[in-house]
Design a protein around this nucleic acid. Structure first.
Lengths: 195, 195
DNA sequence: CGTTGGCTTGAGAGGGCTCAAGGCCAGTGG
DNA sequence: CCACTGGCCTTGAGCCCTCTCAAGCCAACG
């Protein structure tokens, strides 16, 4: 069981050093759960019970547009990424998002109470999460900028340059929505790039 | 001097309780600086030396599009908001952003070394910054979603609903860029709303 | 009172969307 | 072994939202 969490442990260890005792405590606070393609990690309207780290597979976070009834991809995640609705998780508010598994996945999950307990027992993990969130906000600002300033083709090129792994592991209609363009647009850009 | 930092202290106190001793330590780590309209807090290409909290006034963070040579607003900030390039500040990398004062402002500034020192002396501030960043990521995700899913008019309506203070204190061509639309578009939407 | 910065208004153009039809697998069941 | 199905991608036609460009207006200010 613990071995599956190695990926998460490695991730944390990039930023903070944990003693063997702390590692043991850390591991006790998590559970690993397997999800199959199509299963939901979180339904919109529900409260997000777990913060989740992806060990394998891929998931999408999306919002259903109430007018057009179409899904809008808010985030995509593969192994080594975090994937949850932080606002709902930390504030106990109903989530706006659906989180669904795109390809069979293993997730490391931590409940709110375990999260709080972990922060109390190993305060330096606050630092880890602060640093992770800093990187996340930077990435999101870039995403906003790209969406506002760049035409579809440039956005797609930036995307495949920055996240080749996402590009290879996810169907392109999800990537299109993530990038804020239609699936047809991605198809046309790809065709144009080949020539 | 210290009194000007009261706004910041109040902000922090919403999330963590500081003892009188800790408050004293906290205050020693900051400096207050006044900026006039048009002055730059950060130039792109430079390393962001300070994390900054706005006490009064307003600032804009923008990026100059290398192709069109136009400025793209990445964030807008007024009193009670944070405003810096976190990536540059924490990683010591050259900033992509310019940060410029829109209307005369007072900023609470903390250097990188003071920031690190403060985290060492009052570790629970890690928690404060983690929580602040959580809220920030949620706001950014909403912004991405809105940009992708909503037409200009709806984005503008959402904006004035959510940030009336920004709408009232900043010229509309900045708001337009922030929302990812042209200044003319905002003008037309406003005209339409009045009728 | 001329200049400058910001807002308004209108005409024309275009990037990207929608809609629709068809192609290409991979899987499933007869 | 092969038709059938569903999911995904492709291609094309037409359209619309929003942009660009241009001109004019108004208020603030030196």
């Amino acid at each position: 069981m613990e071995t599956k969490l190695q990926l998460l442990l490695d991730h944390v260890s990039k930023w903070v050093n944990l003693s063997p005792d702390e590692v043991a405590i850390f591991l006790q606070h998590w559970e690993v759960q397997e999800f199959q393609k199509g299963e939901y990690v979180l339904y919109n309207g529900k409260i997000c019970q777990y913060d989740a780290f992806l060990l394998t597979g891929s998931v999408k976070g999306y919002y259903i547009d109430p007018v057009t009834a179409k899904e809008e991809i808010v985030f995509l995640a593969i192994a080594d990424w975090w994937a949850s609705d932080l606002e709902s998780f930390h504030q106990g508010s109903p989530s706006m998002l659906n989180i669904q598994v795109v390809s069979d996945a293993e997730l490391a999950l931590i409940s709110k109470s375990n999260f709080e307990s972990l922060m109390r027992m190993i305060p330096k993990l606050e630092r880890y999460f602060r640093i992770i969130l800093q990187g996340y906000t930077s990435a999101l600002l870039r995403r906003v900028y790209m969406r506002n300033a760049l035409p579809a083709r440039e956005r797609y090129l930036q995307f495949i340059g920055q996240y080749p792994a996402l590009n290879q592991n996810l169907p392109q209609y999800l990537i299109a929505s993530y990038l804020g363009m239609s699936a047809e647009m991605v198809s046309k850009i790809r065709a144009e790039l080949k020539s």
